[in-house]
Nucleic acid binder design. Sequence first.
DNA 1: CTGAAAGCGCTTACAG
DNA 2: CTGAAAGCGCTTACAG
Lengths: 352, 352
Amino acid sequence: MGPGRMQQGRLFENVVTVKDVAAKADVSTATVSRVLSGKGGVSSELEQRVRSAIDELDYRPNQAARRLRERTAKIIGVLVPDIQIHFFASIVVSIERVLQEAGYLLLLGNTYDSLESEKQHIETFLSEDVSGVIFTPAVSPDIQNFKRLRDAGVPMIAIDRLPGDLRVDTVQVSNEKSTLNATLHLISEGHHRIGYIGGPKSISTAVDRQAGYECALTQLGIPLDQSLIQPGGYTIEGGYRAMRDLWKLNQRPTALLMANNSMTLGAMQFICENDISVPDQISIIGFDDMPWSTILRPPLTVITQPTTEIGVLAAQLMLARLNEPNSSIKHITLETHMVLRQSCLCSKKLPE
Amino acid sequence: MGPGRMQQGRLFENVVTVKDVAAKADVSTATVSRVLSGKGGVSSELEQRVRSAIDELDYRPNQAARRLRERTAKIIGVLVPDIQIHFFASIVVSIERVLQEAGYLLLLGNTYDSLESEKQHIETFLSEDVSGVIFTPAVSPDIQNFKRLRDAGVPMIAIDRLPGDLRVDTVQVSNEKSTLNATLHLISEGHHRIGYIGGPKSISTAVDRQAGYECALTQLGIPLDQSLIQPGGYTIEGGYRAMRDLWKLNQRPTALLMANNSMTLGAMQFICENDISVPDQISIIGFDDMPWSTILRPPLTVITQPTTEIGVLAAQLMLARLNEPNSSIKHITLETHMVLRQSCLCSKKLPE
DNA sequence: CTGAAAGCGCTTACAG
DNA sequence: CTGAAAGCGCTTACAG
């Protein structure tokens, strides 16, 4: 009658419980629990017996029971727009590494930038009694969904996008500075007509990145040409359409800056289909370094974000806040940097 | 004293329980539970009162308690090599859609093709008392880790790679046929020296795909040249090295077939760095259609797998097995198909 | 150092 | 149709 008996279906699981272990070790369940917790206070003899019993019975504590009893789930909810986007996958993986180390389970949800979906996941998080939530808001200023979490006293860390006026720890990159520098770089290469494919006004990173672009032009006295600023909605399709529209202009841009990786994918699609020569006809700077950035012809110059650090810091902020719920709110801003490749002229001059 | 009181830290959560609801609605907790379950057997008057109370108190059942009581977690563990790989991200997303619909929670683990990591995640799954596990084995023939799940009576569905002789439902693609057809295609274009970058012998898909390649050559009486078959370990770095080695050969291949997307990324890296002309110097067929396949120059011909269907079918098989634990074991094989683009000559002739 | 007992929030026989 | 009560597996005061 060892473990492994009763295999007919799931109705009768081989539940080995503390009771079984206690019986086998001839101690109380309290003692088993004490050994398990590792906090000491158990004589080495009893500890021995308990450990043997645990091994022999292949005992594994039931997490649901633990959660119910301890009133803490040790689960962190993580909400991102779409795990299929490499940028977010990379962040999630590094969050997971840190939280797992600390004994937390990770519950992942994709919002697809929909408030409705965001809300549903938050309801799930609440039902699961998550210990905290690390999130990228679907819509930056609309924080209704997160107010429910706040009211329930759930610690939150916002990453990538800023969540309106919600007072929570945040980890972001210096978005405005990143596009400002990239634009200045393009100007320094002699470009004056710089196309810009931007994201939704409802997302803080999109607003900041566009501000950086506009600021650079203004700084150097280049008038803003609204026809050069196209909305790409942070999507592949949007990027494609935006590039198409830019290319329709009588006066085409000689350079292009894009505000995220999905739009880059779409714009490059149009460029490829129409056999537009890069950087001869147009210089390009993308946002986010992707595994495929270096296999384009020419390889793509990009603004790259430190995804691993974003994830690690977010997870660490979460752990810190769980320990010190009332410590002051922290805002971390990480620098991006440019990786110069051949899709822009770099330090060379414009042709002719 | 509405919900939202007691906000100082997490020690005192606003736990609204069935008891509170029952008290407010002036019924027993049993009645509240019955309303919640929706199985009927409650007078409409009481149901009304209960529903109002639930709304007013913003009551949400505690999942940990439910799990403990019902002896079923309604959690499905999902194990993939790496969610950062688009192929797996896409499958996971479609699994999630189906399982969420059915009221299951998804617990995700990345194995990074390590047996140790695989084992750890499985221990977690067991502790969480998962209802089932959908997995891609890290090492196809080594099924020790999964035996623990089987012995615990946990239903399993294997996807992508076959798990040795473990008797579980599987969803895979016709791997051998896919590379066989691709190779035949290249031969029909006039190629005789076709390079092949393959995966680890420990992974079933790699073995099958290589078999397809070899079979095609044999079928048409083209002798196998071992120097044309390079191991790429299913990694980016491996793909790069394999391509480098192929290009070192005195007699270079005129075409190239690769067994997965990571290796494609690596090989394309070498091709790009060395400015190798595609398809003039070498025709290329990759495995898996990626978002970036069409922005390469030239766009990449690929063997594409139906990721969404793989995920949906895996999830449906799981739900079916949860309902009918003893139904006969099913093996589903999905066809791949080739997407012809300009990286191989397609129906044109070889130059000269 | 150790154990008997209470209780976390829920659902489901069991009685009526 | 409804409620009182038991119990899922665990941990932690409370006594000793």
